[in-house]
C-alpha cells in the first residue's frame, strides 16, 4: 500500500493520479459514511471516513485492520488535520484522534509514505 498524506489542497490526489497513472474510475472518494469500496485502486479522502467514525463512536484504524487484505496493494490518500488549535467541538477533537491514529496505523503498514507540501512530494518512508 502506498500512503499519501498532507494538508488540504496540497496536490495529493493530482500527485496520485500522475504517479500511479490512475483513471477517474480507479478512485473511490470517501464520504462521511461507513462504506469504503476497497476494490478501487485508490481510496481518496480517508479523513472523511475517519470523521464518520469520530461522530459515530467507531474505530477507523480497526476498520482498516479488519479489511487489511483488501487494500494491501492500494493507494490511500488522507488529509493531515493534526496541526491546528485544539478544536472546541468534541466531534472535531474526536476526528483529530481518529484521523491521527488512522494515519499512524496506515503509515506503519505502508510500503511508501509521501507527504505533499505545496504540490511537492516529500518521501517520509
Amino acid at each position: 500500500m502506498e500512503l499519501i498524506i498532507g494538508g488540504a489542497y496540497q496536490g495529493k490526489t493530482g500527485y496520485a493520479i500522475k504517479k500511479y497513472s490512475l483513471r477517474e474510475t480507479d478512485i473511490f472518494t470517501c464520504a462521511e459514511a461507513p462504506e469504503i469500496d476497497f476494490s478501487a485502486r485508490c481510496v481518496d479522502n480517508a479523513e472523511r471516513f475517519a470523521l464518520w467514525c469520530a461522530r459515530n463512536g467507531a474505530d477507523a484504524a480497526a476498520f482498516f485492520e479488519a479489511h487489511g487484505e483488501e487494500w494491501e496493494n492500494s493507494v490511500i490518500i488522507c488529509e493531515d488535520i493534526s496541526s491546528g488549535v485544539v478544536p472546541l467541538g468534541a466531534d472535531m477533537r474526536a476526528w483529530r484522534e481518529q484521523n491521527g491514529k488512522l494515519c499512524a496505523f496506515l503509515s506503519a503498514r505502508a510500503q511508501t509514505v509521501t507527504r505533499m507540501f505545496c504540490g511537492l512530494p516529500q518521501r517520509l518512508k
Binding site: 494538508g7 488540504a8 488529509e79 488535520i81 491546528g84 478544536p87 472535531m92 476526528w95 505545496c118 504540490g119
Partner: peptide
C-alpha cells in the same frame, strides 16, 4: 503561510481563501 492542516470545517468564506492561498503556494512552488 501554511494554514492547511487543522481539524475544522470552515464556512465557504474561509475555505475559498484557503483554496486561493493553496493555489498561489502550489503555483509558486512549481
Amino acid at each position: 503561510d501554511f494554514i492547511f492542516s487543522d481539524a475544522a470545517r470552515y464556512g465557504e468564506f474561509t475555505e475559498s481563501f484557503r483554496r486561493a492561498l493553496a493555489y498561489l503556494n502550489n503555483s509558486l512552488a512549481g
